[in-house]
């Protein structure tokens, strides 16, 4: 955003958001003993990496990246992960829950709830504990879901990683209190105040690389209960008589491929994606199937330690 910052008459909303996120990242780097950045390979993560590079330049970000792997991500995501870690020269820690691996937990036999709980919720707790991380950056935004509108930027977790909505600290001005007892940790959300449109505009403006799955292309999909699921590898279980069809689709959110719904789209470029997003009439998280499991599900998952 250099062109904007030369004698600016007024800062734009994106410049303000960028400065705020950088400020938050620096506070954590200065005060936490062992910070880590959670990396999910999605577009929000891409923005987080970009902001981290800006916050500490010319130093490298003073923390590693952590990917809690479920082994069920899209192949294109694994390719992006390898590329980004190399490009930024940051240490990348990949954690797979050994218990989930041993038991072969998958979305087909065990359902989305157990799959998510074992691989993501438990996997994340394990990775944080094993490495002794006391502060973990996440890319959650307040506009994603109602219960997140009240999430603090610094969210405290007890020694057993639980989130207690009643014991969260007030956040005034630009002051964040990161003091904690041994064993306690914080989740930090530097892009809390960004909306989906802000994220897209920033990716556009800063030319940030994202996984190609966000752009429309012909992909093999099956339709189940009105949701388009991409057949990303041969582990995909097809129902009797079910034949993958090539359809022009893209993804609005990325996760485990059997749990990510695609949308039919013609948007092959970033501007076309933004255009489609602006003209669309359904909200972002609809493609993400874990939210539909039960009412107030995100709040419940958060209390259990899933973010």
């Amino acid at each position: 955003m250099q062109s904007e910052t030369l004698s600016p008459s007024r800062l734009t909303h994106l410049q303000r958001l960028e400065a705020e996120s950088i400020h938050i990242m620096r506070e954590v780097a200065a005060e936490a003993e062992r910070p880590v950045m959670m990396y999910s390979i999605g577009k929000d993560s891409a923005v987080m990496l970009h902001l981290a590079a800006k916050a500490f330049f010319p130093s490298r970000p003073p923390f590693p990246l952590l990917h809690v792997d479920t082994t069920w991500k899209f192949q294109a995501m694994y390719e992006m992960r390898a590329k980004m870690a190399e490009k930024l020269g940051m240490e990348l820690i990949v954690h797979k829950n050994p218990e989930a691996e041993a038991r072969g937990i998958n979305p087909f036999d065990h359902g989305s709830a157990l799959h998510t709980d074992m691989w993501k919720t438990e996997g994340l707790k394990q990775a944080l504990e094993m490495n002794g991380f006391d502060a973990a950056f996440g890319g959650a935004r307040r506009d994603e879901e109602k219960s997140r509108a009240k999430e603090r930027v610094f969210s405290f977790r007890s020694a057993n990683q639980r989130w207690d909505p009643k014991s969260q600290r007030p956040e005034l001005w630009k002051l964040y209190n990161s003091r904690k007892a041994p064993g306690e940790s914080i989740r930090v959300f530097p892009i809390s105040n960004w909306t989906e449109l802000d994220i897209w505009q920033y990716i556009h403006l800063e030319k940030i690389p994202i996984v190609p799955l966000y752009f429309a292309a012909l992909r093999p999909v099956v339709e189940r209960d009105g949701t388009l699921i991409m057949v990303d590898d041969d582990r995909m279980r097809l129902n009797p008589g079910e034949v993958p069809q090539m359809r022009k689709v893209r993804f609005r959110t990325l996760g485990c491929y059997p749990l990510s719904g695609a949308v039919e789209s013609e948007a092959e470029t970033l501007t076309a994606v933004i255009q489609e997003m602006l003209l669309t009439t359904t909200s972002e998280r609809q493609g993400r199937m874990i939210d539909h499991d039960q009412a107030a599900s995100m709040e419940k998952k958060k209390q259990e330690g899933y973010f």
Binding site: K146, S147, A149, T195
Partner: peptide
């Protein structure tokens, strides 16, 4: 639309600070 936490819905009151976002052609609002 704006009463978020489950406890609040039951009590019918807002008990915390919630941040909302909207935007027009001229401005973004928090």
């Amino acid at each position: 639309l704006v009463d978020g936490l489950a406890a609040e819905r039951e009590q019918g009151i807002t008990i915390d600070v919630a941040y909302r976002f909207f935007s027009t052609d001229r401005r973004k609002f928090i």
